[in-house]
Nucleic acid binder design. Structure first.
Lengths: 128, 128
DNA sequence: TACTTAAATAGTAATCATTACTAATAAAAG
DNA sequence: CTTTTATTAGTAATGATTACTATTTAAGTA
């Protein structure tokens, strides 16, 4: 795997960000540094970086893919506003095996309603 | 929400299946009962049923969406062959709250290499 | 039971995220 | 410095999903 400047920029954007960016967000951010970088390059690198386990996909299933740094943390996703909140406290003890399958990674997604949406609901701003 | 025969058929397919079907699989299965059902109807109903919490999305992030019944279980996904294995044993105690966010559901995805792929690797069939 | 109306449908067209393709470029190795 | 081979920019193609529209139908009401 060649260490191109495009790949470095993409990886840096993800590692520096505290948000959960999608491919196009990353493309726009990368263009601030490399004005000619192409969207295809971003996608190709995101896939490479995922395969090499240098980044990970945040996976809420209702939206397009978002990418995140690899440090172990989990996510809470609000089903009202789609906000993603990082969880750093360990929730489960990592399993090494499930039956005879080798477990190498795990993702936990808590779904629910975030604090802000709960308050708005109380105040009748967003009554269903 | 009207109780149409299309919606009933779609929900039944998901509840009866032990596989993790995508929208097109469900469309093909539904056509065995309703020969004129349209793919758009399948998609629309899958979204309705998800919003009503009558079905759920199986979410491995690397592939198109797959749908599953709602009974509480979690998933192991093989990163080699994309096989999805259901896990019925509880892995975490359900949380009611995370900080001030209301937790209504959780999804756990264990990623790794399934028994079959491990064996094939040992036998050198699928050496990387 | 017939009438009304609002939601759902079939069929098709459009959208949009992602991937594939190609000639040109640039890491990395010798 | 030259060679090799992956990577790139730019664009076209793909394919999952959504939107649109005239028609149908579930379900409420007289």
């Amino acid at each position: 795997m060649k260490n191109t400047k495009q790949r470095k920029v993409i990886l840096e954007i993800i590692n520096r960000s505290n948000e959960h960016l999608n491919a196009y967000d990353i493309y726009e951010e990368a263009r601030k540094t490399l004005k000619n970088i192409s969207l295809g390059t971003v996608y190709r690198n995101l896939n490479c970086l995922c395969n090499e386990n240098l980044i990970t996909i945040v996976n809420d299933g209702q939206e397009k893919k978002r990418y995140d740094k690899i440090e172990k943390h989990q996510h809470f996703i609000c089903t009202r506003c789609n906000k993603i909140i990082d969880i750093y406290e360990p929730i489960i003890k990592p399993l090494k095996k499930y039956e005879n399958n080798l477990v190498m990674n795990y993702k936990i997604i808590l779904e629910g309603i975030c604090e802000k949406c709960l308050k708005e609901e109380e105040n009748g701003i967003k009554r269903k």
